[in-house]
Design a protein around this nucleic acid. Sequence first.
DNA 1: TTCGAGATCGGCT
DNA 2: GCCGATCTCGAAG
Length: 215
Amino acid sequence: MVGRQLTPLRRAFYDRPVLDVALDLLGAVVWHDEVAVRLTEVEAYAGAADPASHAYRGQTARNRVMFGPPGHAYVYFTYGMHFCMNLVCGPPALASAVLLRAGEVVAGSDVAAGRRSGAAARDLARGPARLCQALDIDRRLDGEDVTVPGGLVVAAAAEPVAANRVRRGPRVGISQAADRPWRLWIDGDPSVSAYRAHVPRRRRTSGEAKSLGGH
DNA sequence: TTCGAGATCGGCT
DNA sequence: GCCGATCTCGAAG
């Protein structure tokens, strides 16, 4: 049982600059409801100072957890069907957080596969929404303290990821400040999600359909 | 293998 | 109303 003996990271661990926390989360293990995921890819969001962050425009009902104490989960709903999970870090006023983008299922893979309708092992938690699905994370866990045993827990890496295996690059799927290299991943790990630059969604409108047809 | 578009709904302007 | 820190499937190369 990989996850049972894991000790949650102390809350003080998260009360540091967001990039430091993101780096230490590589290789850390997220445990929830019989499934454990070893993180292989994360993204840093510098809260109120970051145009790409949900906290950039100030506190709202949705992002209030980001403005609270570090060590708590910020879970939000997006695209009408997906959940994504962040870990709040740093002083509350900064509202910075780390998005958990992908990982490798290290315990409860049968349970995770059931939730992911039999996806391939490497795909079980590859991508932020898939990771939440594999771990059965949704809005119920928004605001959950991950630094205490029970429920949703994040534990330190069994052994630190070698510095020469950590890679940095642009963040994924955002249109603002997309050039900041605040996406961190473990080089060569098969569970790292494929990089896709932000592409504005195309939307069918009557005017567009008309111009496509004739003009 | 790569690309494009649909699904679907809550938050914010 | 508009658009998103996404995923999946089908079509084309």
